[in-house]
Design a protein around this nucleic acid. Structure first.
Lengths: 231, 231
DNA sequence: CGTCTGCTTGATCAGGGTCAACTCAGGTGG
DNA sequence: CCACCTGAGTTGACCCTGATCAAGCAGACG
């Protein structure tokens, strides 16, 4: 019933050099919208690679609120943050029908013994994740609300284009609330800014449906600071 | 002239299980205040473990400003974010006399072949870093200025205590500007908040010298949201 | 002794948060 | 089939926090 993927296919999804090993394959897991790949605090056993579908990852902040950390899609890895504590600090919810490839961590570590390149590949993967996170942190705290939203839409567009969808016309799988949480804004502000962007003719929004008319302008706007935070 | 450290000592510093291997040792690097361990864009060759001293790590944000990413001290690892691109996205500046232990990455990867536990240890290390970064991101964007500063001082205090210094009385090695950049505030606001905390009797500040009187109150305050961001 | 950088303090202002009311789409059940 | 409900999204009015601009001070150093 469940599909299986060979190591080679997984490497391809992750953007690693395609390595092959006989007899190694990984089970697919199906999630219906609203189902979770794992919940906060659950013991860490496996990593997951997104094969199909759209998800959101959430985490409780020190202030007790649940905030959105990322919106994973095809090719993204889930669960890397659980390696250290051996339990998941975040949780991941499917926003659509999803198919994940489960990679039992124990098996992965054993694989590394024979395949140093694979090991290095994963190390690079998590290092990239770290760099992205840092970048996001720096960037978000120095942008205006408008620039944040522009940046968000632009980055979504890039990601969609990267996995074979249209980069100019797509469905937002998340609520305004979720976008706000991710960007550190309220849902009212997100709504207002999207309206403003539409007025300026950069995009069209109708509920969740989005069309980008001027990605060039978005790309410039996404790096406009609030004013000049650090002189 | 230069000191060397055995693998076992490095593991100890990092909080890993102390592993021993004959003939493996790592060179110490001395930095004077203001000197850099590496600069942005420099090819990635080595990780560094802080043995002594205090540093700051900086990165240019998408908006072009240079912002503070972290304030490393004893036991922290520098350079993990360079593994992916094989060049350093950030740079690290000594704020005091520092002694770093240089770990050539190539050598480390070779070591991993023989020592799976070491490999896993480093993977956990970087995973922890990722989790921390996520946590910081979530937390900072939902705190008031006062809570941010309280959290910052409290976390400094914990870290100082963890490496054998006093947790209640210490010198701030960084400028208000740097603290502001790290927390996403202006230096004026940092200054005002510290003044306010002093008025409330929680701390004493005199320039860079800091004494914490009520760490219990700080600990509570550090989790007070701006109001109630996510209802 | 002058200069520079870091720090403090005050006055002003605006971006975006808060609160509230209303619309709209989809789902449920009588 | 329609009334009702719920959650998402929109829009407006108001206000607060923290940024901006400006000025003055103190310690470090040539």
């Amino acid at each position: 019933m469940a599909r299986w993927s060979a190591l080679e296919e997984v490497c391809g999804l992750l953007g690693l050099k395609p390595l092959t090993k006989k007899g190694i394959s990984f089970r697919h897991v199906r999630l219906a919208p609203g189902e979770r790949a794992y919940v906060t605090g659950q013991p860490f056993r496996s990593l997951f690679v997104v094969h199909t579908g759209f998800l959101k990852s959430m985490m409780v902040s020190e202030t007790g609120g649940v905030e959105v950390v990322s919106f994973p899609m095809r090719g993204d890895v889930l669960g890397l943050d659980g390696v250290y504590a051996r339990s998941h600090p975040s949780e991941v919810i499917a926003q659509s029908l999803c198919e994940l490839i489960e990679i039992p961590f124990q098996a992965l570590v054993e694989l590394w013994q024979d395949m140093p390149q694979l090991e290095l590949g994963f190390f690079e993967l998590i290092s990239r994740e770290l760099t992205r996170q840092q970048h996001l942190l720096l960037t978000l705290r120095s942008l205006s609300a408008e620039a944040k939203v522009a940046r968000f839409l632009w980055s979504l567009s890039e990601r969609f284009a990267g996995i074979g969808y249209s980069g100019t016309q797509f469905i937002l799988r998340m609520t305004r609330q979720d976008i706000g949480s991710y960007l550190g804004l309220t849902h009212e502000t997100v709504s207002r800014v999207m309206h403003a962007l539409q007025q300026e003719g950069l995009i069209s929004v109708d509920q969740r449906a989005l069309t980008i008319h001027r990605s060039d302008v978005l790309q410039v706007m996404r790096r406009l600071p609030v004013r000049s935070r650090s002189r």
